[in-house]
């Protein structure tokens, strides 16, 4: 079953991971911070949504996890790592399941990813800080995650369509 990676696949992994990292970095540069921690756009998720549709499930996982690990090496600490990893893993799983049902467009998948990313992070923060009180942030994080996810999913959907045409 295990096949050797082709040169094209290696290039794809590298390109997509680099792109996801650049998008993370751009987001990191935008001086936007809301009162509630965790409210953000999640630009890098465009790449993950794209990978989920066009490259395949393992690719999406590898790209997303590599981005988290590499961004941590460059900008983060252990605490931030657990934090972004929990969001990334949960959102990947939810997006994968939503894609598998075949009922959602990339827009819905993106929204699901945004919402579950925030749920993952808040669960992780509740465990790390040992407080249940964070649940009070959940409503605003659900809404902001859905809103950001819709934008990301919509953008991702456009990219998926355009690139599909180019490739054929």
């Amino acid at each position: 079953m295990k096949k050797k990676l082709t040169g094209k696949q290696i290039a794809e992994y590298g390109l997509m991971t680099a792109l996801a990292m650049v998008l993370s970095y751009i987001e990191y540069l935008i001086p936007f911070s809301a009162a509630v921690p965790g409210v953000k756009l999640g630009l890098a998720n465009i790449v993950v949504v794209f990978a989920l549709y066009r490259l395949g499930v393992p690719q999406a996982f590898v790209i997303s996890l590599l981005r988290v690990v590499l961004m941590t090496f460059m900008f983060g600490n252990a605490f931030a790592f657990i934090y972004s990893l929990s969001g990334a893993v949960l959102s990947l799983c939810v997006m994968l399941l939503m894609r598998r049902t075949g009922r959602f467009s990339p827009v819905g998948v993106g929204a699901g990813g945004g919402v579950s990313h925030n749920i993952g992070q808040i669960l992780c923060a509740m465990l790390l800080l040992e407080t249940k009180r964070l649940i009070y942030y959940l409503p605003i994080l659900l809404i902001s995650g859905a809103a950001a996810g819709l934008v990301i999913g919509f953008t991702g959907g456009i990219v998926i369509e355009r690139l599909a045409k180019e490739q054929k």
Binding site: R103, G108, A111, P139, L142, I143, A146
Partner: peptide, 17 residues
């Protein structure tokens, strides 16, 4: 289904709030 999903999320947020 996307619309249903987003509606459900908004409803859940409203209920928790």
């Amino acid at each position: 289904y996307d619309t249903i999903f987003v509606m459900a999320v908004i409803l859940a947020a409203a209920l928790i709030w």
